[in-house]
Nucleic acid binder design. Sequence first.
DNA 1: CTGAAAGCGCTAACAT
DNA 2: ATGTTAGCGCTTTCAG
Lengths: 355, 355
Amino acid sequence: MHEAIFPLSFPAPGRKPVSIKDIARQADVSHSTVSRALRNSPLVHPETAEKIRAIAASSGYRVSAVARSLVSQRTQTIGVVVTNIGDPFNAEVVSGIEDVANAFGYSVLLASSQSDPVRELGVVHSFEERRVDGIIVNSSRVGSLYQELLSSLSIPVVFINNHNPGGFAYSVSIDDVAGARQVTEHLLALGHTRLAYIGDRFGLQSNLDRMAGFQDALERAPQARRPPIIVYGDGTSAGGAQAMKELLESGQNPTAVFCYNDRTAIGALSTIQERGLRVPEDISVTGFDDLPVSSFCHPPLTTLRQPMNGMGRQAMQILEQLLSRNSQPPDMANKFIGNLIVRQSTAAPSNGKQS
Amino acid sequence: MHEAIFPLSFPAPGRKPVSIKDIARQADVSHSTVSRALRNSPLVHPETAEKIRAIAASSGYRVSAVARSLVSQRTQTIGVVVTNIGDPFNAEVVSGIEDVANAFGYSVLLASSQSDPVRELGVVHSFEERRVDGIIVNSSRVGSLYQELLSSLSIPVVFINNHNPGGFAYSVSIDDVAGARQVTEHLLALGHTRLAYIGDRFGLQSNLDRMAGFQDALERAPQARRPPIIVYGDGTSAGGAQAMKELLESGQNPTAVFCYNDRTAIGALSTIQERGLRVPEDISVTGFDDLPVSSFCHPPLTTLRQPMNGMGRQAMQILEQLLSRNSQPPDMANKFIGNLIVRQSTAAPSNGKQS
DNA sequence: CTGAAAGCGCTAACAT
DNA sequence: ATGTTAGCGCTTTCAG
């Protein structure tokens, strides 16, 4: 009778949730009838069903998804692994996943690997124990390790932007090579001959692919100075800023810089302008991703748009198809082609600057 | 014997996970012994324990967290509600939460409300069914509705940045009033007299509080022009850009603009520069949050730093204390004071510009 | 040290 | 239309 010793909002500690048995007792029926009534089974008399639902509602009853999962062998939950949710790219992808997952009645278990292969495997391990119905791995950083793990897994996995050589797994990804080529061709068409690439030293395959696309485009441009200038950041703005400093101090004077991603480009922009140089007059800068912030940079960033949200959505759609056995298996490799978004961070090189 | 009809990585559809019973059979012991051995209970003979663990490992056994939860009445899972994970502010907070949750052995179930009160309640409802051990709600947009829900909830809830009048719930938040006051005082000290505020029309209490802090500082500055100019965005960069346009076209010529948050400020920056005006020479701009990108803006943004990650961490720490009954109940209200970070987007007004 | 048995909350035959 | 029973995979007494 002294229930109110806690502040109003203090959760009653350990208050046991009401179960169908409790309701059954109150309604004077069996627990199966309660179970049926609550799931709107036609097999129960409308009147008793109504009575049961009333009791359930007033008692604050909530089915136990855990008990239900134990029998159904389905948790209606999917696990999502990202390297780091603070990365706006990942955040957008997760947002797309969550959206579709929600529409299909799935909940999302989120975990980040901090780009640590060991943690990444630990996360998958934990997902298995929690009996998630499927897993989506965004920008896996442990490539080959996964192939092994995959075959021991009995739940479907969909990768996003995980370009493993020979990867025979479901994946949705951007065509990095083609994207980088597009961007580079844009720079070339503008008349640049002295190009630089700021890579991501932790970018693994996608870094290699973007660099490949970059070099690929250069191959066909005899006027371009060779070899191209290449420096490395770490995929963050701070890394991009630092790499740009090295570039500026190297005396190589590129007139255009293709950055691994938008964050790197934003860092590069910052360094360039800090030094009193102008973009695009003195140096053109391009990114890759088209983050929400990129169109508001100064100057607005020319970049290759990845449908981040869309890729997340598609990954979840594939997973859903995999999970509902009544549909045909989806394609394994789903490659998106990005769109070149030309904004004001690129322009023809100013002749006066040619050295 | 035709097991290999699927590609190597194709998940064996519906392959049933191995259970302790399976292991028990193989090891010729009872399933309780297996259960004990697997949890390193001292009550089992080292030799049999070893044997059991070997079988478990080779068979790829994974405890079923769902079965375990059914008996333990704990899921070791917490639910996190955000308005939108694409918002970098939320992403940072979630990152902090995830970090600490992980350290304490909790998984996080993430769901976004899209700022829709109905969805927000739906999410909490779903969390209840899934029997999460606790809930963290970030920037709740349904304020008072929650108070009601709260008292019917039997699991602890911690709010982040939810300033409900009279909120008697666990919460960690930033002192919006003091923060806004700090920023405004900085602007005033620089000599600005014609200040504007770009609010967030969906910002609810935090918008009101930041505006209050802004006006509060102005009250004590007799030199400041009154009433202050106030326009509204929606918390996004696009909204900030739009609001800034209105401001510029209103002919009120503010020399300093205090923005609701960094995203709004970034949008404002973009509009100002697009019009050929300079920051800070023509107009000073300040934000609120200090997003990772803000120090790389051009010019780098003067703003009030919120320890986003730290707030997420603290919220999870509080939840953990609430969950482990053996510690004293934490404080209910945990208010952070932000730090003013002065960068290059603010400066004294140039006299030539004074109208 | 180990096994038998009960039970967590629910669903799903199988009987009425 | 409803009740009975079994069982999902695990932990936990309670007996040996």
